[in-house]
Structures are given as C-alpha cells and as structure tokens.
C-alpha cells in the first residue's frame, strides 16, 4: 500500500502540489485524473524519487520512502516518451534492471534470459529481443518500456500518461492489455492521465487531482454519477455547472450541476411546471456518431452542453440563435457547497 501524507511541492512561486493525501491500495488499478499542469507528473516523480517533496511523507506499507535515493525505492516508472536506452537491443533494455540494479542483481545469464523472455512474452513481444529499439513501432516501444519495468517486479508501477504517444486505435487495445497484465501480476498500477474516458475505463479506483489537491477518490461509476465537488464534476466532462439563480423551480442556491444527458429541451414557455428550467440560446450542434452534442449559452454567459443518444433521440429540431427552455428532473441536480 502506497500512502502519501500531506505532500507538498513548490517550484519557486508556483505550487504544484498542496498537501496531497492519497492512498493506493494493494492489487489495485488506480487512475489519477488531472488536467495538464495539475501536478500529476510531479506527484509521480515524487513517488519515484526523481524529486523530493518540500513537506509531507511518502511511505510504502508504513515504511517511509521519501529521502531514499530513487534507485533503492523499488518502484517501477513507465515514461510517457518510453525513455528506452537507444544503444541497446530490446532484450538488453528489458534485462537492464535485472543485470545492473544495486539490490540483488541477477548474475545468472540463464535466469536473466528466462525472466527477460517471460517479460517480453507477457507484453506480446516474443521474438523481438534482438531488434534495435529504433527498429520497432511506437506501440512496441511502449510494450518494451512496460516489460522493462515489470521484469524487476517493483512494489508498485507508476505509468505517466502511458498511452499519450499512441494513436487512438492502439490506445484502446493497450488499455485492455494493461488491465489484463496487471491482473496477472497482482501488483498495483498508478496510471496518470488527462483523459477522463481513459481514467474511468482503466481504473478500479479513480482519483481526481485539481489545483494541487486530490479532490475526490472513488469507484469510476460513483465518481461519474456523484461528483462531490465542482472540480471533480468538471473533470468528468459530463456535467454542466451553473448558478442555481438562473433556474426557475426548486433547485436551492449556489453552484449546481446537471449531467449532459439529463437535460431536456422544449420551446420557450413550454417547460413542465414541476421541473426546474432555465432559458438558453442554442449555439450549435456537434455530431459524433452514436451521440450528438448541442451547445447552449445561458443568460449569464455560461456554456451548457446537452448530449443526445442516437438510439433514443429526445431533442426537438433546434434552430441556431433561437432560445429554448432547458429543463431537468429535480433529483438530477447535484448541489455543491463552498467555492465552485
């Protein structure tokens, strides 16, 4: 179990992490979702020991690891750009950790070969050992980077936007494989990403990092359906967040959120009396295949999005520039307290 306790990191005036409390349980696929610049890479670098926190403690199973040199921490790190050793073959890249680590290096060539070949097989690269790393594709490099980390059997594997450098097709295939590999090895993965779909799809648990703090941790479905605050709702990219005073009807006050797929549209003045509603101008639509997204501008300038599923269309025909009444069920509303 990896525990972060009130961990802070500043770069001059900029606060990258501001008292992060965070736990990655054993045998878990944990996604860490954060926008670019939210400090998620910094968090990983602190855990791996490439940098040290200004304040706070990092520990694994109760033993502190902050302050330890990174090559003694026994933590796996998969780099976004893979960071393969350009002068070594695929095999030697993967064998590097076994051969050259300070703690218990493997001297027996037969064992090195066996374990390296097993790791390559695990990531589906058997027979690629003799290749130069410059002679394989991006997806294969990703696998080499993964095999190179996994072969040393680290206590936890950190993945820094591991799919960012891959094309969309490869990305979804790699997602499934990452999950399958992790389930076979029973080691915890901490997967950092800026994509909410990736985070929700991959994680047994998802944590949201915003403004240097973990704002919410939970199961993907809970997090998606019941964000606890505006910051985590915003990261789901599925919630309209607006001021309750825009609405007529029983909605309370302050910042409220309604999911893209839970808003209905009717002509001005036609909204059902029982449902909270607000007036907004239709801007434009975006057709995405199975879903269609419509954009509205509320009276105070807030941008609202409504999603319509092709199999169950529920929106009327919309005219750009026209105003409509947007309404929703009273229990679809999530009310946030404190600052939005």
């Amino acid at each position: 179990m990896l525990t972060l306790n009130r961990v802070s990191r500043r770069y001059g005036e900029t606060i990258a992490l501001d008292g992060v409390d965070f736990v990655v349980p054993e045998n878990t696929y944990m996604s860490l979702l954060g926008a670019s610049g939210s400090g998620k890479t910094t968090l990983l670098r602190l855990i791996a020991g490439f940098e040290e926190p200004d304040q706070g403690e990092i520990s694994i199973n109760g033993a502190r690891i902050d302050g330890q040199p990174s090559h003694l921490r026994d933590i796996g790190f998969v780099f976004q750009n893979f960071a393969l050793f350009p002068h070594l073959t695929v095999f030697e890249n993967v064998a590097f950790g076994l051969r050259h680590r300070v703690n218990a290096p493997v001297k027996n060539e037969k064992e090195i070969k066996e374990r390296t070949d097993n790791a390559l097989e695990l990531v589906g690269l058997e027979g690629f050992g003799h290749r130069a790393v410059s002679a394989i594709s991006g997806g294969q490099r990703q696998r080499v980077a993964l095999a190179r980390t996994l072969v040393t059997e680290p206590r936890i594997v950190l993945l820094d936007e591991p799919l960012g450098a891959l094309d969309a097709n490869l990305r979804s295939r790699m997602c499934d494989e990452l999950k399958a590999i992790r389930e076979r090895l029973k080691v915890s993965f901490l997967h950092v990403t800026g994509s909410e779909t990736e985070a929700l799809m991959m994680g047994d648990k998802v944590a949201v990092l915003a403004d240097g703090k973990i704002v919410q941790t939970g199961a993907p479905d809970t997090l998606f359906a019941e964000p606890l605050n505006a910051a985590s709702a915003r990261h789901m990219n599925a919630w309209n967040i607006f001021d309750a005073s825009l609405c007529a009807g029983p909605v309370g006050q302050g910042a409220i959120a309604v999911r893209f797929d839970q808003i209905d549209i009717s002509a001005t003045g036609q909204a059902p009396e029982t449902r909270p509603h607000l007036k907004a101008k239709y801007l434009t639509g975006e057709f995405n295949g199975p879903t269609a997204l419509s954009f509205f501008r509320a009276e105070d300038g807030t941008l609202l999005q409504i999603i319509d599923h092709l199999s169950q269309p529920r929106l009327p025909d919309l005219v750009e520039g026209e105003s409509y009444d947007l309404h929703f069920a009273p229990d679809a509303v999530r009310q946030f307290h404190g600052a939005a």
Binding site: H71, L72, L84
Partner: peptide, 21 residues
C-alpha cells in the same frame, strides 16, 4: 534524454553503473 537516465535509476542502477552502461 534526461528521462533515459531517470529510467536507469528507477530500474535500480547506481550512478556509476548508469555512467558506464
């Protein structure tokens, strides 16, 4: 690439080994 050197450290190599290898 600095991350190549970080990767080697992460795999458990000391600075001497990283320099040599």
């Amino acid at each position: 690439d600095p991350s190549v050197i970080e990767a080697a450290r992460d795999l458990g190599a000391s600075f001497g080994t990283i320099f040599r290898r």
